[in-house]
């Protein structure tokens, strides 16, 4: 990665948003380079949507500064809107308009000309031509998502912001969606995508993890897993449920989770973890071997840590942002 400032598509520091006395986003810093696909992860209500809305000018930050596509995030939101495609979490096109009518509306808002050529090309590209006259409200989840993506990229934005784009979409549609995203990134489009899905996070070039409004991890998936310092062991054998109960609560054991026929045992202190597992290794019916820490293990740890922080502050965890 180069440090050429021209290459930074999103470069914001200290973004803060409060709703009432709740700080939904707390001094978030985010840097995204051109052509990157950056995953934006975090539990429900951690401030992902709020951060994305601040980046695309839908919300005014209470604090912080920075640029998006070289435009000031505080004062140049109209310029930003012209060059950003934002796909909302909830389907937000007109259900009583047909696909083509929705696209025509969007094309005219962006003053694309000629409108019909843009609409036809977009329909063609996303394989929506045969359904052009179908009302958007009658589309299934997967098709709605295609339509939303089509509408967001029609004006050829330089930055695509996707807010949980694949929620409620079947695996095949998800796969196709991600292929499309990678294709767009290959053409130079920068993508910031928020998600809950681990497999999607692994499809990103880099990830940012936000928890209760604070950015707590950043880097490639490998970086984030390594930086977490977690150690994982796999336990194989019969009656793993009972083993899990035995292990839970032992010093050094932070997570115990069954994965099919094995048990993931995760901890951040290798010595303590080994000590806890030593008695098991002696049992003939069980086998204990070092395993690979998954991104999910890391996230569970992040979430566990953050929840503790919030509990100490006595804050309300029901922030819906």
């Amino acid at each position: 990665m180069t440090d050429d400032p021209d290459e930074s598509v999103i470069d914001v520091t200290g973004l803060t948003k409060r709703f009432g006395n709740k700080t939904v986003v707390d001094h978030a810093t985010l840097k995204v380079k051109r052509g990157e696909i950056v995953g934006f992860l975090g539990p429900n209500g951690s401030g992902k949507t709020t951060t994305i809305r601040m980046i695309c000018g839908l919300l005014t930050p209470d604090e912080g500064s920075g640029t998006v596509l070289g435009f000031d995030v505080l004062t140049e939101s109209l310029e930003i809107k012209n060059e950003v495609g934002y796909m909302t979490q909830k389907f937000s096109f007109y259900e009583d308009l047909s696909i083509a009518e929705n696209l025509t509306f969007v094309a005219r808002l962006y003053r694309l000309s000629p409108v019909s050529r843009y609409v036809d090309e977009t329909l063609e590209r996303l394989g929506l031509s045969s359904r052009r006259n179908q009302l958007a409200g009658t589309l299934s989840g997967g098709w709605k998502q295609r339509l939303a993506l089509a509408a967001c990229i029609m004006h050829q934005p330089k930055l695509l912001l996707l807010d949980e784009p694949t929620a409620g979409v079947d695996p095949k549609a998800r796969r196709e969606f991600w292929d499309e995203i990678h294709e767009l990134a290959g053409e130079g489009l920068t993508v910031l995508v928020s998600t809950h899905y681990m497999d999607e996070a692994e499809r990103c070039h880099r990830i940012n993890y936000i928890s209760y409004g604070k950015m707590i991890a950043e880097g490639t998936v490998t970086d984030v897993v390594r930086d977490s310092g977690l150690v994982t062991y796999l336990v194989h054998g019969p009656r793993l449920e009972r083993v899990a109960t035995e292990l839970a609560g032992l010093p050094g054991v932070e997570q115990v989770a069954p994965f099919g026929n094995s048990l993931h045992v995760v901890g951040s202190d290798p010595k303590l973890l080994k000590r806890a597992l030593a008695p098991l290794a002696k049992r003939p019916e069980l086998s204990v071997e070092p395993g690979e820490t998954s991104l999910e293990d890391v996230f569970i740890k992040f979430m566990a840590d953050s929840t503790d922080n919030m509990a100490e502050n006595g804050a309300n965890n029901e922030i819906d942002a």
Partner: peptide, 14 residues
């Protein structure tokens, strides 16, 4: 109410 406002505002309309 239908959430289309968010989309409308994200597009460049004054």
């Amino acid at each position: 109410e239908r959430g289309t406002m968010e989309n409308l505002l994200a597009m460049p309309a004054s």
